[in-house]
């Protein structure tokens, strides 16, 4: 009838987390008899009676409503195939590609061409993990200019910060436009030097997500103009 671990402790698959029926297993944990067991390497989070694992690694798994940054890799007569960083490409159909009416048989490359970068939203994921995307919605568009960096999926919440505090700080200081895709791709657009500064500050967050007072550290880093302070 007890919890065997502390909040935010690193746990290893197969480790017993709690005994008795007082706790409930959630993401990354499972019940074995009267014990709750870790089923994924990560940090344990205790929410009342619910135990879940915050993973530290892993690839992007598409979920509905995710905003992702994708690249056009293929085109058919009625749709585009978009690489969103999952094992298979996602589908962007004509209907969801634009708020304009696209006539049947028109040249699709006029809208999105090979290699174009698009922010889109996942509208549907079926059992076989076939993904449908849309570009209709606020903030969803073809991206022009700027740069794209990749970060670990597990670090995205840190880069965004509480209520977006971290990303808005970086945006504010550098004056760059920044879009973070749930698939770990970050688009940064602004003055070239500022883009570079924003890029490095995001890598800083990714490198030291567990740092106490991370926002202050990033703020100081930005104010020094990206010089590493000791």
């Amino acid at each position: 009838m007890s919890l065997l671990i502390k909040e935010k402790q690193l746990v290893i698959p197969g480790e017993t987390l709690a005994k008795g029926m007082d706790f409930v297993p959630s993401d990354g944990t499972y019940r074995d008899g009267d014990e709750i067991v870790c089923g994924q390497l990560g940090l344990i989070s205790v929410h009342g009676r619910v135990l879940r694992i915050i993973p530290l690694a892993g690839r992007y798994i598409p979920r509905e409503e995710d905003v992702v940054i994708g690249r056009v890799v293929n085109m058919s007569l009625s749709s585009w195939q978009i690489d969103i960083g999952y094992a298979y490409e996602a589908n962007l159909s004509l209907r969801d590609a634009s708020s304009d009416f696209i006539e049947r048989g028109s040249d699709l490359a006029k809208y999105y061409d090979f290699g174009d970068i698009v922010t889109c939203k996942v509208i549907q994921v079926n059992r076989a993990k076939f993904v449908d995307l849309t570009v209709k919605g606020p903030g969803l568009k073809k991206l022009k200019g700027g740069r794209i960096i990749n970060i670990s999926i597990a670090k995205i919440p840190r880069v965004i910060g509480k209520q977006g505090s971290m990303v808005s700080l970086i945006k504010q200081v550098t004056g760059c436009e920044i879009t973070i895709g749930q698939n770990g791709r970050v688009w940064i657009s602004g003055e070239p030097e500022k883009e570079y500064l924003a890029e490095r500050s995001i890598y800083l967050v990714e490198r030291e997500p567990q740092h106490v007072g991370l926002t202050d550290k990033v703020k100081a880093f930005l104010e020094r103009g990206g010089v590493d302070g000791k």
């Binding site: 290893i12 089923g39 690694a57």
Partner: peptide, 11 residues
Amino acid sequence: LADAGFLMKEM
């Protein structure tokens, strides 16, 4: 496999 973050019952 554990390091890659897969769901594993045990090691």
